[in-house]
Design a protein around this nucleic acid. Sequence first.
DNA 1: GATTTTCAGCTTGTATACTAGATAACGGCA
DNA 2: TGCCGTTATCTAGTATACAAGCTGAAAATC
Lengths: 231, 231
Amino acid sequence: MATGTTRKASMADTVYEALREDIFELRLTPGDKFSEGDVGQRLNASRTPVREALYRLQREGYVEVLFRSGWQVKPLSARQVDDLYELRITLEQAAIHKLCSPTSPAPSLPMLNSQATPVTSISPLEERNFHCDLVAAAGNQEMSRVHSEIMDRLRLISRHHPADAAHAGDDRTEHAMILEAVKAGNETEAERRLISHIRIGQQAARKYTGNQEDSTATNLNGEQKSAPNDA
Amino acid sequence: MATGTTRKASMADTVYEALREDIFELRLTPGDKFSEGDVGQRLNASRTPVREALYRLQREGYVEVLFRSGWQVKPLSARQVDDLYELRITLEQAAIHKLCSPTSPAPSLPMLNSQATPVTSISPLEERNFHCDLVAAAGNQEMSRVHSEIMDRLRLISRHHPADAAHAGDDRTEHAMILEAVKAGNETEAERRLISHIRIGQQAARKYTGNQEDSTATNLNGEQKSAPNDA
DNA sequence: GATTTTCAGCTTGTATACTAGATAACGGCA
DNA sequence: TGCCGTTATCTAGTATACAAGCTGAAAATC
């Protein structure tokens, strides 16, 4: 029966996916403003599903609504990025801790062996999946859910600048080394390798977000919007 | 002005608060079903703000929508509760780690000294605030946000059964001891005390959730619910 | 020319009408 | 009596209409 789920992609889902992709593909960049009517007209949908999609994105932190003044893509402050990276490290560290714990019932490490791929450039998606799989393997669904959201948020950041090609080639190797330590049950070493691996990405992200440290986030359009960064 | 124009609680906000309180005050219990029309009629609101409120609650995990068959308060499985507790411990542990870290710029530990209160029964809200403040003091807003959501989820659990009065009186003492260790920079001891403190609540929660182990709705996203009885 | 006022055109927030689909009750048939 | 098909009703999903409010530019006044 294909497990039911007769979800024939509602209009709201379609709009959500489209907007999300617009944001991730940088067709909508932080600071861009738009109205519900615009989106509806562009995607041939009425305002109702558009609003639902926008509220979903709002809850996920991607857009914000300006009271009766339209919507805009929410910029990430450098502080937020650092906070997200720290939270991500915390979660992945906890995952490794679980995986290395002897009480753990030897959970499924399915993708661990499939890392013998050639050393070519790694895709952002593969990078994301590795870390998500790592956390998922630890078996805590709530942790996995939160972690996935964070990874998406951070992936968007790295989309805003070309990945540091100089280092990209080493990602698979680092992944493999992390897994090796995990499988060996060497928690300390695994954590060290993991943090080192993540910090590289964080440093790269910092280079591009460090200048919008002040509350008035400068967007690409050069527009100035009063950033009411409520502390 | 002051932080984004105090917009006077939109209808959607009102409905959201009302429904949330209904859930927290157990006027709506897991499994209860209702329709958008019901809520709108009861709260004198049209379906539009009701829907927005329901989608917010859905995203936070409190309710779920059955395709064209109404809404229902989402039950928490024992597995979820355990996962949430584990995630909570992870976050609070990380907070303590930050607070005890020497590189930390001696963050604000504002409420730490106000713990010289008499040893009476602690309220669930005070219990919640202590842990939220602890995480907030660590200075990571994203961590704080996630932690707060988890605390709300878990607080709902403890609302479903009377708190173990036998132990309630010790909470403040335990809090004080945790803070003492944190202030002394004794991370190991602080963590030990913290985990011990939290585990007590977890054990209490387990007694009441252990029987709904059945793995319905273990979907990651929680959006799609595959009907187990598709006949 | 500078400043203030007004107003038209946007925006989101809300209400309501309509549609498609799922559920359950009911009645006919074997 | 038990089963199956039909239908009636209720549901969320969607479209659209209306209301309230913000913005900015044009216009009028000083």
